[in-house]
Amino acid sequence: MFKSLVKLPGASITITVDGRAVSCTAGENLAAVLLREGFQPFRTTPVSDAPRMPYCMMGVCFDCLAVVDGMPNRQTCLTVTADGMEVARQIGGPEPSAYLTARGADD
């Protein structure tokens, strides 16, 4: 599977992926970290529940979505890691009520 070619500069941090502690570098591309960790599938679709993985890695395809710090539908390829970040697999589409309780919902 995927692995880093170089040691990235930056502080070593820990994020949580589906409840599991994962070490990475602060400021890394979150989708890249998840690919390295074998996170598969990234999500399933809202209506047909089909599995999805990152496709474009540049913010266009919306296939790398995950729940990040409680907020559904985050594009992980446009998200950078931060210490303590909580990532959860998104199975099916988000319930509308999820948006009311997510961290950052009042931003």
Binding site: T45, P46, V47, F62, N73, G92, G93, P94, E95, P96
Partner: peptide, 19 residues
């Protein structure tokens, strides 16, 4: 896209079949 939550549509708000 969201989980289907609209049993019927409103005149100016509609959830598409894709969510």
């Amino acid at each position: 896209k969201l989980k289907p939550f609209m049993p019927v549509c409103f005149h100016f708000i509609r959830q598409t079949a894709d969510g």
